[in-house]
Simulated scan of single mutants.
Amino acid sequence: MMIMDEQIKASEVWLTGLDGEDLGIVSREEALRMAREHKVSLVCTSLMSSPPPCRLISRSAAKQDMNAQKREEKRKEQPQKTKEIRLTPHIEEHDYDTKLRQIAKMLESGSAVELTVRVQGKGKESQQAKALLERLLADLKGKGTKETGIQVSGKGAAVKVLPIE
């Protein structure tokens, strides 16, 4: 949250000028007068210290900062998207490489990926499915981490991979 101009309630502020120069500790009224004089805004950068650090910035820059902050908060509020990639245990090498690139791209864009390997029979195929997922996880090191272990059931195997932030 950004506090500007008259919203600042502190009696004294630590002021930074338009070019980043340190103007020291001045009274709130003096800082507001300087802001009006230069036709700029007085923006408080943190409320955690006393006196609070404030800076003089142009109104358009202050608006841009505020809009960027709102966009960032909105983006953080959205739930993480999970995309599913389905594979078969008998995947050919070029298909494997294509899927690997797709998964890496999804993880880099911030989406979680659910990797699912479907099998027809039991026994040997479900072991192949688990081995395929383990190979994918090894190849995705550095791009994603598994949320849970590999779940093997009668119909296949699955694992959820979260992007590294």
Rank of each mutant, 00 (worst) to 15 (best):
V113R: 04
A104L: 09
P79G: 04
L87Q: 00
A112Q: 11
L107V: 06
I85Y: 09
E108L: 13
M48Q: 11
A62P: 05
Q80D: 02
V159S: 00
L140Y: 10
L136V: 01
R118W: 03
D95T: 14
H90D: 15
T148V: 06
R55S: 11
E147C: 10
I85R: 06
R101T: 08
E21W: 07
A62S: 12
M48Y: 11
Q151P: 02
I57R: 07
R33Y: 04
A10W: 08
G142M: 14
K81A: 15
Q151D: 14
T16H: 02
G121E: 11
Q102P: 00
R118Q: 07
T145Y: 04
A157F: 02
A112E: 13
A62N: 07
R36H: 00
E147I: 05
K155H: 12
K83D: 08
A10S: 12
R75Y: 01
G154R: 14
S27D: 05
P79Q: 14
E30K: 09
E125P: 15
Y96R: 10
K105H: 02
T148I: 05
E77K: 13
V117L: 02
V40C: 13
K130Q: 13
K70V: 13
S46M: 10
G149P: 10
L100C: 09
T98R: 15
K39F: 08
T16V: 06
E73H: 12
P79H: 06
L15Y: 11
Q128W: 07
K141L: 12
E147Q: 15
Q102T: 04
Q120W: 05
G121T: 07
K141M: 08
K124W: 03
R59N: 14
A129K: 09
K74S: 12
K74Y: 11
P53E: 07
I8G: 01
Q151N: 15
L32R: 05
E84Q: 05
G20W: 06
R101E: 13
H94T: 07
K122N: 05
T88L: 12
S60L: 11
S126K: 14
Q78W: 15
L15K: 06
V119D: 08
T116M: 02
M4T: 15
I150K: 11
Q78L: 15
E12S: 03
R75G: 01
G149T: 09
H38I: 04
I25E: 11
K130L: 08
H94S: 08
E6A: 14
L133T: 00
I150W: 08
R118G: 02
D65Q: 13
K141D: 12
H94N: 10
R75P: 00
M2S: 03
K81G: 03
K160D: 07
A10M: 02
V117H: 05
A157V: 06
E92R: 15
K39M: 03
E12Y: 07
L107D: 09
K99E: 12
L23M: 07
R118M: 08
D139N: 12
L87E: 01
L162P: 04
Q7E: 15
C44N: 08
M4G: 10
K63N: 10
S111A: 12
T145A: 15
D5V: 11
T148S: 13
S111K: 11
K70L: 09
C54M: 13
L32C: 00
E77T: 05
L100F: 09
K146I: 04
E21V: 07
R86Q: 12
E84I: 05
T116E: 05
V152Y: 01
G154I: 10
A138F: 13
E37N: 02
